[in-house]
């Protein structure tokens, strides 16, 4: 279970997040929506331990972030909005590289399975030769090597064709069901949110989004 208590974030004098409170259960898929600049990425980065809130606290399975940063990080998979891969290495080498540095041991077969599960089959291809959609899939696959309990995705399907998008979403849904992974992700695509998510959280106070969600 992920608990967010009274989380506030200020950049200088600018309030981005103001006393956010919510809880997410094991196996839930939650979408974050809101206008541009509402603070979705900011919240995701706080949940990913990449920055700390100005006040308030976050707990993952009862462990407060600020006290157990190391243990918490072992449980997190963060898929950044920007592609974070070794461009000159192959798909396989990227997977093997991050497996070597991760907390877990996986066989090459297991690593390959993660990729095939999300229809990424160009195992030997160099990343720089992959299409944008395939890169996104690998970007996600690497974050799954250590089987995180909390998966955070920042606009994972932006700029991807429909087929890849469906494949990625199907995979995520399966993951939450099978492994009980908590998945939080941001998107501007309302139909996608409605299809994939158990619930959506609105960041910011624009009434427009409240209306849309209730439709």
């Amino acid at each position: 279970m992920l608990e967010i208590r009274e989380v506030t974030k200020k950049y200088g004098r600018k309030h981005v997040l103001d006393r956010i409170n919510f809880q997410i259960m094991r196996g839930e898929v939650v979408g974050l929506i809101g206008e541009n600049g509402a603070g979705k990425s900011t919240l995701l980065q706080i949940l990913a331990t990449l920055m700390s809130p100005t006040s308030g606290q976050v707990l993952l399975y009862q462990q407060p972030y600020h006290k157990h940063i190391k243990q918490v990080r072992k449980k997190i998979g963060y898929v950044p909005q920007d592609i974070a891969l070794w461009e000159q290495l192959s798909v396989k080498d990227n997977m093997v590289f991050f497996e070597k540095l991760s907390w877990v041991n996986r066989t090459e077969q297991q690593l390959k399975q993660i990729c095939t599960d999300m229809q990424l089959n160009q195992w030997k291809e160099k990343v720089k030769n992959l299409s944008g959609g395939m890169k996104r899939k690998l970007n996600l696959a690497i974050s799954l090597i250590h089987e995180p309990e909390l998966l955070l995705l920042d606009e994972p399907t932006v700029g991807i064709d429909l087929k890849s998008r469906v494949e990625i979403n199907a995979y995520l849904k399966e993951l939450s069901k099978q492994k009980g992974t908590i998945i939080i992700y941001t998107s501007h695509d309302m139909s996608e949110i409605k299809e994939l998510c158990d619930r959506a959280l609105i960041i910011g106070d624009d009434p427009f989004y409240h209306d849309i969600l209730n439709q």
């Binding site: 331990t49 990449l50 997190i76 974070a84 070794w86 540095l101």
Partner: peptide, 18 residues
């Protein structure tokens, strides 16, 4: 300067150790 550096946050070793 690559984005990939970010991933070391979730690894056994920090980027500086690497």
């Amino acid at each position: 300067s690559q984005h990939v550096r970010l991933r070391f946050q979730y690894m056994k070793v920090s980027y500086r150790c690497f």
